[in-house]
């Protein structure tokens, strides 16, 4: 692979081509906020948290889906990016009903952690308060649309790792919903293998096991990444 040189936050980095800005940043201890990214599965640039500034490019681009190029100059820590990250986080919180105090994921939630990272103390946008369904039809797991941020990690894990294709996405805008099969109750799914990878992959309290009580949820999304690595090794 061809070697190329680029600059990220003033740091000169020499690496191989064909990789994303996010991969290179992670390798070089440059911290970038992410939400829809999960190591091992395809990046889609859905959450817009990893936006970076690239010299000569007028708009911000997502680090997870933008490939590096020779002599690229990238900035990940400007005031503009921080402002956008805070806006994105506030919009996540305002769009659905994220009531941390009664959420199963309270204290173990990636969205909550993100709110601390971007120093969010209140939300400047009007809350939408949508009426969202909670699907409890599955014998082991619950899907709570109130807490969903539509990162689609569950959709991608189900398709790419388990190969079951149970999850998909329906509608657009604020009506967007993650659906099981053809928008039927999860418990009636003919494709779901009950493996629970979507539950582990979910960053919030949108997918959770019934065996867990409020505030006791502890997910292990890195388990998905490890699983992918182990399968590659074909031991």
């Amino acid at each position: 692979m061809a070697k190329l040189t680029l600059q990220i936050d003033g740091k000169t980095i020499e690496t191989e081509s064909g990789r994303t800005i996010l991969e290179v940043c992670k390798e070089n201890d440059i911290h970038i906020l992410t939400m829809c990214h999960l190591k091992g599965i395809t990046d889609v640039g859905a959450c817009r948290l990893c936006l970076v500034e690239i010299e000569g490019v007028s708009k911000l681009l997502s680090a997870c889906t933008t490939k590096i190029a020779d002599k690229m100059v990238v900035r990940t820590d400007t005031e503009k990016i921080k402002r956008y990250q805070r806006i994105t986080t506030e919009l996540f919180a305002a769009e659905r009903n994220h009531v941390c105090s009664v959420c199963i994921a309270n204290g173990h939630c990636e969205l909550q952690k993100l709110a601390y990272d971007v120093k969010m103390d209140h939300i400047r946008y009007p809350y939408l308060f949508p009426q969202c369904e909670v699907d409890t039809s599955h014998p082991l797991y619950v899907l709570d649309h109130n807490r969903c941020i539509v990162c689609t990690r569950c959709v991608r894990v189900c398709a790419e790792v388990e190969g079951a294709y149970n999850w998909d996405v329906m509608n657009r805008g604020t009506n967007v919903r993650v659906i099981s099969d053809f928008n039927t109750p999860w418990g009636e799914s003919v494709t779901c293998t009950d493996c629970g990878k979507c539950v582990e992959a979910c960053p919030t309290g949108a997918l959770w096991p019934k065996a867990v009580v409020q505030g006791q949820l502890n997910k292990a999304p890195q388990m998905i990444s490890e699983l992918i690595e182990k399968r590659k090794m074909k031991l």
């Binding site: 009531v99 939300i123 949508p130 009426q131």
Partner: peptide, 19 residues
């Protein structure tokens, strides 16, 4: 000063807003 989640984001009191 907004003190606490109810003042800031309606929290549990606002859960009736869905209906």
């Amino acid at each position: 000063i907004s003190l606490g989640d109810c003042a800031i984001m309606t929290n549990v009191t606002g859960m009736r807003n869905y209906f």
